[in-house]
Amino acid sequence: MQKSLLVAALFLAISGCATPPPSVHTKDPASSTLQGDATRPAQAQWVRTELYFSVGSIDGKEGVVSPARWREFLDQEVTTRFPDGFSVLDAYGQWKDHDAKVPERLATKVIVILHEGSPKRESDIEAIRLAYKRITGDLSVLRLSQPAQVSF
């Protein structure tokens, strides 16, 4: 009897530790529109911008941006301008200058930002590019922007 009570008490204690299911952020999970969300209008003109940053040569030469320095750049320059979010991808890049005999092979970070097309956002993106050039001395940060159909 005492053993049965102990097992029952243990079961109750453990079941009390179970985590509840994750909360759902919408009342209609089947819907993919943001009707009524003023911060992300359904009819906004969305743009997908990709920015390509060299973080150093894959050959181990000078100019490597450390992971800590990259995170600091993201925190200070990108997150402050796009606090709602963006994605960062690791990539391999290469390019050849006009007079070079072989291409330069680079460790690369690509930031993908989905944003509304507006003069403010254009200015924010250009400020990010300029900040990275100032920090690293790089001559360029490649930018690709194109219209995007976005649904959250």
Rank of each mutant, 00 (worst) to 15 (best):
T80R: 08
A30I: 07
Q45Y: 09
V110S: 01
A42P: 11
S118Q: 10
S57D: 08
K27A: 12
G93M: 06
Q76C: 07
K120N: 13
G117C: 09
P29Q: 07
E104A: 14
P67N: 00
D59E: 09
P22V: 05
R71D: 10
K120G: 06
V24R: 11
S31L: 06
I58R: 06
R48G: 09
F73E: 06
P119Q: 10
T26Y: 04
G93L: 14
R121T: 08
K96S: 12
A68I: 03
V64I: 06
V110R: 01
E122N: 12
L114G: 02
D99H: 13
V78P: 03
F86C: 01
A68G: 08
T26H: 05
V65I: 12
Y52C: 03
T80M: 00
G93V: 09
R69N: 14
G56H: 09
D28I: 09
D99Q: 13
L89S: 05
W46P: 06
G117Q: 14
Q94S: 09
H98R: 14
L106V: 14
Q76F: 07
Q45M: 13
I58D: 11
V110F: 00
P29L: 00
V78M: 01
T26G: 03
Q35M: 12
Q76L: 10
A42C: 15
D75L: 00
A100I: 13
D90F: 02
R121A: 10
S23P: 02
P21K: 02
G36M: 10
S54G: 05
T79Q: 08
R71C: 03
Q35P: 00
Y92I: 04
K101F: 08
S32R: 15
G93C: 07
Q35L: 14
S66C: 03
P20M: 13
T80Y: 00
G93A: 10
Y52Q: 06
F82M: 00
R71F: 03
R48W: 11
A30D: 12
E116W: 03
S31G: 03
E50W: 09
P20V: 13
P22I: 00
F73M: 03
P83M: 01
I111S: 02
A30Q: 09
G85M: 05
L89F: 14
V47N: 04
V64S: 06
V110E: 01
G93R: 08
L106A: 07
P20G: 15
A38P: 11
F86G: 00
A100P: 12
Q43V: 01
G36T: 04
L114Q: 03
T80F: 04
T49A: 00
R48I: 14
T79P: 05
D97H: 13
A42Y: 12
G93Y: 10
I113L: 10
S118F: 12
E104C: 15
R40V: 04
Q76E: 14
A30S: 15
A91Q: 04
R69Y: 07
R48M: 14
V102N: 15
Q45A: 12
